[in-house]
Design a protein around this nucleic acid. Structure first.
Length: 449
RNA sequence: GGCCCGUUGGUCAAGCGGUCAAGACGUCGGCCUCUCACGCCGGAAACAGGGGUUCAAUUCCCCUACGGGUCACCA
């Protein structure tokens, strides 16, 4: 059996697009699943489009995602003479010719041989067909295929030519790429035929879309892998989601959707790649990211969350435990923890709560009680809870009647990462007492108006 | 416009001639509860349309509609 060899062949013209990451992922998974090799090749034959630093971003992204390449990176621009050599061979065989400027769009201005342009010769008769693993047999009339340029006037090969030469000599067995190349594949097949080579197996993947009629583009602001990583998404979650966008496991695994990279290798199967484009769903990505966050060890969450939390003298253990269930993306943390530095500004109407049966008036009583409970006895969650419970029972009120106002007083927010009691423990005794006193003063001042 | 490809709930999707047409996200309702969440339970929601083939079509074929890709000395 021939060794499976796949490749990822991006051009360094920007940053890593999510679609590119997905293509790389599928190619990598396919190679690993079949015990083969994954090759990286940089297709930089268009010098005008070259973007400084883009190559490094490709390397870093692939490494960060765990998609390590077994060979390469091969750089096409450094192999230009190779391509020219094979183009000349085709000319010798009569399968290609120096551009004679008959082409409508030819710009070599009658320079003919000196233009340096080499085109493939295509007889307008017959058909060319190939088998795509996803789309099946595709056939086109040769009359539809143009006599494409192989070597440009600057001596560089075109994509279509370099791609074929490299895939052949790098022994690529399976070409996995986006289906924007589906239409140019017949040209590639014709080139293989001209050389007398065996074409690889083709696996074309449908695009990732922003909505039903636009693909996810760089202009949307978050089409890049780095956009998501910078917003606080976990790379495992991004990879997991991307894998499922356009591919799904079959049979017994059909209902499963949380996969580590290793598990994806195990489950991957090209037959599960879908023919139709998939719309990128931010909510779903977020849900998967949330799943990863919630199931990570608390210590790990604390470590990753710390940079997003204001530095202060608080109980991080309790805070992070509360935050972990409330974080879908790390960037959710700052707006939840802004109360740590000081209680947020609020209207005393916030004390009105139908379910808790509270109001600014009752809050005054509740906070005074809290002052007493906090002031006496031990400052621990259990001790405080006992204190509030006892007080609540004596007064025949629900514990929330005391604790909800406490939360407001401490945070100034109707929604906080934890109830009043938790916030107390997080802030500590002194800070809590200070804030309660301030809150009491605030209510009294407002009410006297 | 020519050529190529696609079309199951709002989204990702399972299904590969006979199913009450999975599951997840989202959404709605409920439970839990010191807020908000988490968790749990439940609901609404789909085979683009029309012809065939067949005892039987979501599944096979054709047409239409809609969508996408491609028609460069870009990849």
């Amino acid at each position: 059996m021939k060794e499976v060899r796949t490749r990822f062949a991006p051009s360094p013209t920007g940053f890593m697009h999510l679609g590119g990451v997905r293509t790389a992922l599928y190619a990598w998974l396919f190679a690993k699943k079949n015990g083969g090799k994954f090759i990286l090749r940089i297709e930089d034959t268009d010098q005008k489009r070259y973007v400084e630093g883009a190559v490094e971003v490709i390397y870093e992204t692939l490494r960060e995602c765990g998609l390590n390449w077994d060979e390469g990176p091969y750089i096409q621009s450094r192999r230009r003479d190779e391509y020219l050599k094979y183009a000349k061979e085709l000319v010798k065989k009569g399968e290609a010719y120096y551009c004679d400027c008959d082409g409508e769009n030819c710009e070599c201005g009658g320079l003919s041989l000196t233009s340096g342009i080499i085109r493939q010769r295509v007889t307008g008769e017959g058909k060319t067909s190939f088998n795509d693993e996803i789309y099946g047999v595709i056939t086109v009339e040769n009359s539809e295929i143009e006599e494409q340029v192989l070597i440009k006037s600057d001596g560089m090969p075109t994509y279509n030519f370099a791609n074929v030469i490299d895939d052949h000599f790098m022994n690529i067995t399976h070409v996995i790429r986006g289906n924007e190349f589906l239409s140019s594949t017949p040209k590639h097949v014709l080139l293989y035929k001209a050389f007398g080579w065996e074409p690889p197996v083709y696996i074309h993947c449908a695009q990732i879309m922003r909505d039903s009629s636009h693909k996810l583009s760089k202009r949307d602001g978050d089409a890049y892998f780095s956009d998501f990583r910078d917003k606080g998404y976990l790379t495992e979650a991004i990879i997991n989601y991307i894998a499922l966008l356009g591919w799904s496991p079959k049979g017994a695994l059909a209902e499963r959707e949380i996969f580590s990279l290793e598990e994806l290798v195990e489950a991957f199967d090209a037959g599960g790649i879908s023919k139709s484009p998939a719309i990128f769903d931010r909510d779903k990505l977020k849900a998967i990211n949330a799943h990863y966050i919630r199931s990570m060890p608390p210590e790990k969450f604390t470590e990753l969350a710390k940079p997003y939390i204001p530095k202060a003298d608080v109980d991080y253990g309790v805070l992070c435990a509360a935050l972990q269930q409330r974080t879908e993306v790390f960037s959710d943390i700052p707006p939840q923890t802004d109360f740590i530095e000081r209680a947020c500004d609020y209207e005393i109407g916030l004390y009105d709560n139908k379910k808790m049966k509270t109001s600014p008036e009752t809050a005054l009583q509740a906070l005074n009680a809290a002052l007493e409970i906090l002031g006496n006895g031990l400052f621990s969650r259990d001790a405080l809870y006992g204190g509030f419970k006892e007080t609540a029972e004596k007064s025949e009120r629900k514990i929330g009647w005391y604790l909800y106002p406490l939360q407001i007083a401490l945070t100034g927010k109707s929604a906080a990462p934890g109830g009043g009691l938790d916030i107390c423990v997080i802030l500590g005794k002194d800070e809590s007492l200070t804030r309660i006193k301030q809150a009491i003063k605030k209510i009294i001042v407002k009410q006297s108006h």
